[in-house]
Design a protein around this nucleic acid. Structure first.
Length: 832
RNA sequence: GCGAGAGUGGCGAAACUGGCAGACGCGCUGGACUUAGGAUCCAGUGGGGUGACCCUUGCGGGUUCGAGUCCCGCCUCUCGCACCA
């Protein structure tokens, strides 16, 4: 492919033709291996972008936005002398692909390669500096062999376990979902309301890492918004677990107020509750257990049994949305009483769905005086409300018209020996006191739950476990990996709670690896988020088949130097990836506890002020724009429309400005003169621009870097001047990360032999960038009244004299100044 | 409700630790070149006033020689989390 040259003798200058230039350099890069990374090169720099799910619709403009932002950063680092590894792959397993395949009636094994091929074509066009030799595809057995290996590593370390639990079940996707995949009680994929089902599932013990995952957030170099989202998700809260003994009808019979049941209960039941406010124990007037709490069964009295059963049944059937959205308090008395460990009061035990089984112990002590939810419940059911904390202006007898929850200024009342203590002190002292009495311990609870990784679906890596009647649960030995996902025509999920692979005897039946007797394979596959939780470890070691990641390469390339991606993955992918990396670190397989040295969340692209969506019909098709404007223009435009970390508004109308800039760059290089000297004024602006672009690009301020180059372009061509080559050539380098094809072409036009990306970054000279005279702003009484041209290092006296000598300024400076403020190099402020 | 972020021309947006508000681009206006212009180039472009000047960064106060930027009190929007005890 060559760029058309004008016919001999033609006067017509060659116009910028992006189609030809881009095709030429795509071919040239492939031929020369320009984008191939030497894994043993000097100053390794791992530039990571979030690999896409290859949808049938093709590359989304949002993907392109993220990739371009990464690519510019990677290319810039290369021009700074780093050996940059910029890999990419496909996150092609998962429910989304499978649902789409089912809908279209095309098997995923056919659909995915087709989508991948289309993605690859679009990605190639975008001019990314990707080393495709390191590509990964999560659906390739050569990859998921190691995903299964990761599962086994966790199993080995006691971090993967199977348990029966109430889990989120999507009736439409017919599979369980992780908590992270349930948004407002609905499936994040299909938005169907999620049900609760009791199923046996594989879990990863991520909660064992909660503390470390939280602590490292204090120092990792990540976008603040992402760290905050993770902190909230981990949800650490400090408090105490208090033990309440439920009165036994036999032993406690005769105690005043106990309703003796005919039912004989065996032994005494102790209900542990978690609270962050142990200081309010004297105000705990009843207990509430979640409807699913196992103790409910045991303590309910005969009189209350029918009501309780009905209530539990209702709660069980109710989906999460109505349970969460309908916040009206409901509940039923169990008939049982428990003893308040602080004051010995007998308090009723209720069950209510405002208490969640999944958090803390699934039971609470209700302190209606100082908790809004308990106050609401107590009011609805006429339960006693006791004040145990008083605001500075209140006393022990001030009536409570609402829960008083302030824990900063309150002091304890109605709490025996703790009266008068501030809340913070009381928390500690009450916990200590109860701990000594054996009814409490200080505990820290996390909102985070263990990661449910089983999926009752087809399109994922089979979980490498075999169940043997004799040997029990047996992990598939490493040498038997991968457990290949069979290519079966019947892969539709059903409502049985068991994955479709269970229907395929050839897969399901397998000999026990230990004893060789007939046994059964696990038929669930693992969550897609496991595929992506370790992919960054794999890239440098592709295509090694003997190890998931080579120790030496991993040590060289990890942790990732720069990771840029969408904040929608703040608590999913990014938390799981940190967890898996931490486990690998504990196993001595990766060099650092944290996988990503630096993470930045990019913003979202909207279009004409509105969110892009298929239903709105305002989705930008990258192919059409690259056809019309060229990839370099699309890339540069995407980066120009707003701050990269905040996103921007894609408007068709504005793209022409960026194309005009590249047209002018082309013309400036083509027509540049080589005779004589470059203009000193222009060169000064050039050096200021080198500085600005060099500062802005690593800070991801791409929009201002482009603006600076445009500004320089205006100077370069002001008044239709013909620029000197020395004025243009460095600009070609500055623009290269943004517009790689055109700049390679112009670099070649200048007679350079290698790639512009191996030519380094233009040298910046502070001396050349410095203006010798400048305009000093003069303010009088706080108002800007004009400016005077003075030397840069002028003294205050000289500056004031210059201001007073200026006719336009002198009229404002009447009489002797009362006060003069002089900021060197900036302004002079005179008060009269 | 809690947490995070953001409100600046007709539009997308700039503004380093407080120091000329509106860089750059779109659009618009005028001009040049043209048979032509939805091409290219040049110039202008926050609002008001004939003018010297005045007003202007969501609203109201404050600190300061000086506030888009800092402090106090509100309003609006976006994104997370949401009965988490």
């Amino acid at each position: 492919m060559t760029v058309p040259t004008p016919p001999a003798g033609s006067e017509e200058p060659v116009a910028y033709d992006p189609t030809a230039v881009e095709a030429k350099w795509r071919a040239r890069w492939a031929e020369r291996g320009t984008n191939a990374t030497d894994l043993h090169g000097a100053r390794p720099y791992y530039q990571l972008m979030m690999f896409p799910y290859p949808s049938a619709e093709g590359l989304h403009i949002g993907n392109l936005y993220a990739f371009t932002g990464n690519d510019i950063h990677g290319r810039f680092q290369r021009m700074q002398g780093h050996t940059v590894l910029e890999p990419l792959g496909y996150d092609a397993f998962g429910i989304h692909s499978e649902n789409f395949a089912l809908k279209m009636g095309v098997h995923p094994t056919e659909l995915i390669p087709r989508n991948v091929a289309n993605f690859r074509r679009q990605l190639d066009r975008a001019g990314l500096m990707v080393d495709w030799r390191r590509q990964v595809d999560t659906t390739d057995p050569a990859y998921y062999k190691w995903t299964q290996w990761v599962f086994l590593k966790l199993y080995e370390r006691g971090l993967a376990y199977k348990k029966q639990a109430a889990v989120n079940w999507c009736p439409s996707c017919k599979t369980v979902l992780a908590n992270e995949q349930v948004i407002n009680g609905a499936c994040e994929r299909c938005h169907t309301v999620v049900e609760q089902r009791a199923l046996e599932q594989w879990f990863f013990r991520i909660t064992a890492y909660a503390e470390r995952l939280l602590k490292n957030l204090d120092w990792i170099d990540w976008s603040e918004s992402t760290r905050t989202a993770q902190r909230n998700w981990l949800g650490r809260s400090e408090g105490a677990e208090l033990r309440f003994r439920v009165l036994d009808p036999l032993t406690d019979a005769g105690s005043a107020g106990v309703m003796v049941s005919q039912e004989i209960t065996s032994g005494s039941t102790v209900i542990p509750v978690f609270t962050t406010r142990p200081d309010t124990i004297f105000g705990a007037t009843y207990l509430v257990l979640a409807p699913e709490h196992p103790a409910v069964e045991r303590i309910t009295t005969a009189e209350q049994r029918a009501d309780i059963e009905a209530y539990r049944e209702r709660a069980r059937r109710q989906d999460l949305v109505s349970r969460q959205v309908n916040k009206e308090k409901t509940g039923v008395f169990t008939g049982a009483y428990a003893v308040n460990p602080a004051n010995g009061d007998m308090i009723p035990v209720w069950t209510a769905d405002y208490v969640l089984m999944g958090y803390g112990t699934g039971a609470i002590m209700a302190v209606p005086g100082h908790d809004e939810r308990d106050f609401e419940f107590a009011t609805a059911f006429n339960l006693p409300i006791v004040r145990v904390v008083a605001a500075p202006d209140d006393d022990a007898h001030t009536p409570l018209t609402a829960a008083y929850t302030d824990d900063a200024d309150g002091r304890l009342v109605n709490s025996d020996q703790f009266n008068g203590l501030p809340v913070a002190d009381a928390k500690r002292q009450v916990t200590d006191w109860l701990t000594q009495r054996g009814t409490a311990k200080a505990v820290t609870t996390y909102r985070l739950r263990d990661w449910c990784v089983s999926r009752q679906r087809y399109w994922g890596p089979p979980i490498p476990i075999i169940y043997c009647d004799a040997c029990g649960t047996v992990p598939v030995p490493e040498q038997d990996l991968p457990v290949v996902l069979p290519n079966v025509p019947d892969y539709k999920p059903d409502d049985s709670g068991v994955g479709p692979l269970a229907r395929h005897a050839a897969f399901h039946d397998a000999p026990c690896p230990k004893c060789g007797k007939p046994a059964r394979r696990e038929t669930d596959v693992s969550d897609t988020f496991l595929d992506s939780a370790w992919y960054f470890l794999r890239y440098p070691s592709v295509p090694r088949d003997d190890v998931p990641f080579d120790p030496a390469l991993t040590k060289t390339w990890l942790p990732v130097a720069a990771y840029i991606g969408g904040n929608e993955h703040a608590v999913l992918h990014l938390l799981y990836a940190r967890f898996i990396n931490m486990v690998m670190f504990d196993a001595g397989l990766v060099p650092t506890e944290e996988p990503f040295k630096r993470f930045r969340a990019h913003g979202m692209i909207i279009r004409d002020g509105a969110k892009m969506s298929k239903s709105r019909g305002n989705v930008v098709n990258p192919d059409a724009y690259m056809d019309q404007w060229g990839a370099d223009t699309v890339r540069t435009y995407l980066m120009f429309i707003g701050p990269f970390e905040e996103g921007g508004d894609f408007r068709d109308q504005s793209i022409s400005g960026v194309r005009r800039f590249l047209d002018r760059l082309w013309a400036s290089a083509r027509d540049a003169r080589t005779d004589g000297e470059p203009d000193a004024e222009v060169m000064r602006k050039l050096h200021q621009t080198i500085k600005k672009v060099g500062d802005d690009v690593p800070a991801l301020s791409y929009n201002t870097a482009i603006a600076a180059m445009m500004e320089y372009m205006n100077v370069l061509r002001r008044g239709e001047r013909v620029p000197h080559r020395a004025e243009v050539e460095p600009l070609v380098q500055l623009a290269a990360p943004f517009a790689p094809h055109i700049t390679e072409e112009l670099w070649e036009l200048f007679g350079r032999s290698g790639s512009v990306f191996d030519a380094g970054w233009p040298a910046y000279s502070e001396a050349l960038a410095q203006d010798d005279a400048f305009d000093l702003v003069v303010q009088v009484n706080g108002k800007t009244r004009g400016k005077v041209s003075v030397p840069r290092d002028v003294t205050q006296e000289a500056a004031l004299a210059a201001a007073q000598a200026d006719a336009g300024l002198a009229k404002f400076i009447t009489g002797a100044p009362k006060k003069v403020v002089y900021v060197k190099g900036r302004l002079l402020s005179v008060v009269v």
